[in-house]
């Protein structure tokens, strides 16, 4: 037996893993009734939360005039409507997001803006994450919000969370916006729609496809309306005629090429309150 160590170990580990997985499956089946009950409770809760907010078709992006203005904003004057959302050179601006926002910082010019972004950033990890922000060291989002006064905060998250149930994402997103609003009551909060993926990638994935992205963006727009935030959608710039990311802008199907981030930043500076 001394000479067949590996075969022996491998077979033993295979047997062990099979038994463990078998045990897990049996356990899963045995506790299925309990799990089902827990899930039903969760669903009920989600429905409750939905009813708390004014019910509206999430697919509609257009403003509904009957919606109460929860932030107590007055109707904007003509002048205010055409003001750019972002101050000049992104002074006193905080950009929160995932690797696409990192791209804005790395390949575009975000001027004096603070960037709190990282690959894989999502609403569930947002507050625990530590990011090295230029000139500010490695900080959490809470630290940044506590130590600075921002004029505008751009929040562009959602696509990394698509594997989770939609109600959980929306609920967490809603709480995130609320917390930012609490810590920066003077700031204008701008919610960015998530960028589409290319048609090819959309067709290939059950999770990272444009139907789900559109659904999430719809909820984000709704949150924006309820909480008095602006909502901007980059897809108007990079989409093809079918509503997918134009393949011309990307090689991997998920990110635009570095050279187009400058255009994205330029687009940001052109956004006004009227457009959102």
């Amino acid at each position: 037996m001394r000479r067949y160590w590996y075969t022996g170990l491998l077979l033993f580990s295979l047997a062990a893993v099979s038994l463990w997985r078998g045990g897990v499956q049996v356990y899963g089946q045995l506790s299925a009734p309990a799990a089902k009950q827990a899930e039903e409770e969760r669903e009920e809760q989600a429905v409750w939360q939905e009813q708390d907010r004014p019910g509206e078709d999430p697919a509609e992006n257009g403003g509904n005039a009957q919606l109460p203005d929860t932030a107590g904003e007055e109707t904007l004057s003509e002048e205010e409507r055409f003001q750019p959302l972002f101050p000049e050179n992104f002074q006193n601006v905080l950009l929160i997001g995932d690797s696409r926002t990192m791209g804005l910082y790395e390949y575009g010019d975000t001027g004096e803006g603070d960037v709190f972004a990282g690959r894989g950033m999502n609403v569930f990890d947002l507050w625990e994450s530590k990011v090295s922000a230029e000139g500010k060291g490695t900080v959490t989002l809470e630290q940044l919000l506590a130590e600075n006064q921002y004029q505008a905060v751009l929040l562009m998250l959602g696509v990394n969370e698509l594997g989770y149930p939609m109600e959980q994402i929306v609920s967490q997103y809603h709480d995130t916006v609320e917390r930012i609003r609490q810590m920066q009551p003077q700031a204008r909060i701008i919610l960015g729609a998530n960028m589409h993926v290319t048609a090819e990638k959309s067709a290939a994935s059950d999770i990272y496809n444009n139907e789900k992205i559109n659904e999430l963006n719809g909820y984000i727009c709704q949150i924006g309306q309820e909480m008095g935030c602006d909502y901007i959608d980059i897809n108007e710039k990079f989409d093809d005629s079918q509503g997918n990311l134009d393949a011309e802008y990307s090689t991997d199907g998920f990110h635009i090429l570095g050279k187009y981030y400058g255009d994205w930043v330029q687009w940001l500076t052109e956004q006004t309150a009227a457009g959102s």
Partner: peptide
């Protein structure tokens, strides 16, 4: 290598 392609060769 894949990421370098995603960034685009002119931006590295």
């Amino acid at each position: 290598w894949r990421e370098v392609g995603a960034i685009g060769f002119e931006s590295i």
